[in-house]
């Protein structure tokens, strides 16, 4: 694969128009309320766009496949980071007891009076009840 690939202008234009179209899709879907699925869809469109750029504009499709492997490896490391970090944030309190609910934080610091507080799941922590933390109701 050492010979240099020359991409016809037509391909670039088609890819560019795809990117514009997908930008429109991103804006369009943001008006539809799909709940937590909104972010998934937005990321999906963004991933497709990024892949188009990497494959066509950055020539990964025609390049030495080793470079593609390296590119995918970087995605894999990113995936490892995100997934394993989510194992923490999504499972807090899933095993044993959650120290936050068993022993509520004593709110003596000054900022507790000023700002709306949320826990890692976006639930307000102002109310002292332990019920809203049932971990099954929102996954």
């Amino acid at each position: 694969m050492s010979d240099h690939h020359i991409t016809p202008l037509r391909t670039y234009l088609i890819i560019a128009s795809c990117l514009f179209f997908l930008s429109g899709v991103t804006v369009w879907v943001s008006y539809i309320d799909l709940g937590s699925f909104n972010i998934v869809l937005a990321m999906l469109v963004a991933t497709v766009k990024a892949s188009l750029v990497a494959f066509f504009f950055m020539h990964l499709l025609w390049d030495d496949k080793k470079n593609l492997v390296l590119f995918l490896m970087s995605l894999m490391f990113f995936g490892i980071f995100v997934v394993i970090t989510m194992i923490d944030t999504e499972f807090r309190g899933a095993l044993g007891f959650n120290p936050e609910t068993k022993n509520p934080i004593t709110k003596r610091a000054s900022f507790y009076g000023q700002l709306p507080l949320t826990d890692t799941h976006g639930y307000p922590v102002d109310s002292h009840d332990d019920i809203h933390h049932g971990d099954d109701d929102h996954h």
Partner: peptide
């Protein structure tokens, strides 16, 4: 080495599962 970083955080309040 990329999969074990959480062992620095056993007492920082990460989930018991992780």
């Amino acid at each position: 080495g990329f999969l074990v970083w959480g062992h620095h955080m056993f007492t920082s309040g990460q989930s018991v599962f992780s």
